[in-house]
Design a protein around this nucleic acid. Structure first.
Lengths: 144, 144
DNA sequence: GTTGAAAAAACAGAGGA
DNA sequence: TCCTCTGTTTTTTCAAC
């Protein structure tokens, strides 16, 4: 684990977190620091692996995947289940968890009907418990 | 909802998904299309709101938040609970869900001890059920 | 959709406080 | 670690096809 971030690093990351394509020049203006210094800090954050990657978040509703469901799964066929999830485009997140259930998956479907079809395929791998998301209040939030 | 994406849009999004800072010039080379055309397509994807935002993914382990836990919560004090979560930096995701429980939250702590402290604060808002992540197999995956 | 060229902007490196 | 200065590269915006 790395040293804690100082306030300038935090400011830079706050800007980059929701706009990874912001030019260095603009970051430089916003935090009142010269471009080379900003660039240097960003490179260090990348090298220290604090910045994992620059990603592009897509709008799932526009992609016709607006229905979010969390499913807890209890299976005895772990390998087969993981392969099933990797091959199912509906599954966006897959975690191995502790407790009564083995796995927690996050599933994005167009509709609840499509969710039902997914569950039909899932049922042969073991019992599961679904929780449809009624509202995404916030997501992927990292408070520095 | 928008029209389905064509293959060129998919290629551009695949490149941007895991490297939002990739220069247009490089995208242009990789997909063998002129820079102005690539730029035009990206602008359209932004305008159609298919690209929601360019984000920066941080390494939670390096930030001393390497322990992931999913908690199902049943509360009768919804407003208070949501405010509690907004104010708790450990909570990275908050969903209102259907079923026996009201909410599903994702919590990032340094250790399980810190998780226990969080649960102590949570207990007064209602019963909950925790699932510690033993392994993050994949996350935020969108297959186009 | 393409190429090509000019203007503007961003970036990279050196040297020094 | 930060700054300024300078040269280079990249992006952007046209035009015409």
């Amino acid at each position: 684990m790395s040293d804690p971030l100082d306030d300038i690093d935090k400011k830079i990351l706050l800007l980059l977190q929701h706009n990874a394509r912001m030019p260095i020049s603009q970051i430089s203006k916003e935090i009142s620091m010269s471009q080379p210094s900003v660039k240097e800090r960003i490179i260090k954050l990348e090298e220290k692996n604090i910045i994992a990657e620059y990603g592009t978040a897509l709008n799932l509703r526009e992609l016709n995947r607006g229905t979010t469901t969390f499913i807890l799964v209890k299976t005895e066929q772990c390998e087969r289940f993981v392969e099933f999830c990797k091959g199912a485009k509906e599954v966006t997140d897959l975690f191995r968890i502790s407790g009564e259930y083995n796995y927690l998956i996050k599933v994005q479907t167009a509709t609840v009907e499509e969710l039902a079809e997914f569950q039909d395929a899932l049922v042969q791998l073991g019992p599961s418990k679904s929780h449809i998301s009624l509202k995404n209040i916030f997501e992927n939030r990292i408070v520095l």
